[in-house]
C-alpha cells in the first residue's frame, strides 16, 4: 500500500485542511471542537511533503469550515490550505490567513485576567514579529506565544 493511498481517502462533503505544520493537527482538533464531533475525521500525522518536509493533514466529513474557523486555523497553522468539498469535488480553496484579532475562542493563559469572568469574552490581537505568531490579550496585555494557549471556550 502506498503512502499516497493512505493520505488521500476521499470525503463526500466536508473540509480538508492540508499543509498543517507537523505536530499541529491535534491542536486544531481541539481548537475546532472536533474532539466532541460525531462524524468521520481522518487524521494524518508526519506525512511527507515536498515543501514542508513533514506535514499533518485533517479531513472532516460533514462540516464546511467557515471564515472564523479559517482565521483560527491560521494562528496555529499559518499558510495551511483548506479545501471545501461538496459531492466529492473541491468547491472552494483557501489559504489560512492570519486575522488581526481573535474574539471569544481562546482562553487567556493569565489566570488573573478579567477575561476569565463568565460575562467577558476573550479578545486577542495577533502580531507577527520576526515571523512568529504572538497573541496579545486585549485586557491583561499579556503577550503570549501560540504554544501558551492551552484552553478553548468551544
Amino acid at each position: 500500500m502506498s503512502t499516497a493511498t493512505l493520505a488521500v481517502s476521499a470525503i463526500q462533503n466536508g473540509s480538508v485542511i492540508d499543509h498543517i505544520p507537523h505536530g499541529s493537527a491535534l491542536r486544531l482538533i481541539q481548537l475546532l471542537g472536533l474532539d466532541q464531533y460525531n462524524e468521520k475525521i481522518t487524521l494524518g500525522l508526519n506525512l511527507p511533503s515536498k515543501s514542508m518536509g513533514r506535514k499533518d493533514l485533517l479531513k472532516i466529513e460533514g462540516r464546511l469550515l467557515n471564515e472564523s474557523d479559517i482565521y483560527e486555523i491560521a494562528v496555529f497553522a499559518p499558510n495551511a490550505s483548506i479545501n471545501l468539498i461538496e459531492d466529492y469535488e473541491v468547491k472552494h480553496k483557501f489559504t489560512a490567513i492570519l486575522p488581526a484579532a481573535i474574539k471569544g475562542l481562546l482562553v487567556c493563559p493569565n489566570s488573573n485576567c478579567v477575561s476569565r469572568n463568565p460575562d467577558v469574552s476573550s479578545y486577542f490581537h495577533v502580531q507577527t514579529p520576526r515571523q512568529e505568531v504572538n497573541l496579545v490579550c486585549h485586557y491583561c496585555e499579556g503577550v503570549f506565544r501560540k504554544e501558551d494557549i492551552v484552553e478553548y471556550t468551544r
Binding site: 488573573n112 478579567v114 476569565r116 486585549h138 485586557y139 496585555e141
Partner: peptide, 22 residues
C-alpha cells in the same frame, strides 16, 4: 484583576483612569 480597567473603559460611558489593575 488584570485588564479590569480596559473592561471599565469599554463598559462605562465616561473616561477611565487605571489606578492599578492586578
Amino acid at each position: 484583576a488584570a485588564g479590569s480597567a480596559r473592561l471599565a473603559a469599554e463598559t462605562a460611558n465616561v473616561p477611565v483612569i487605571n489606578a492599578g489593575d492586578g
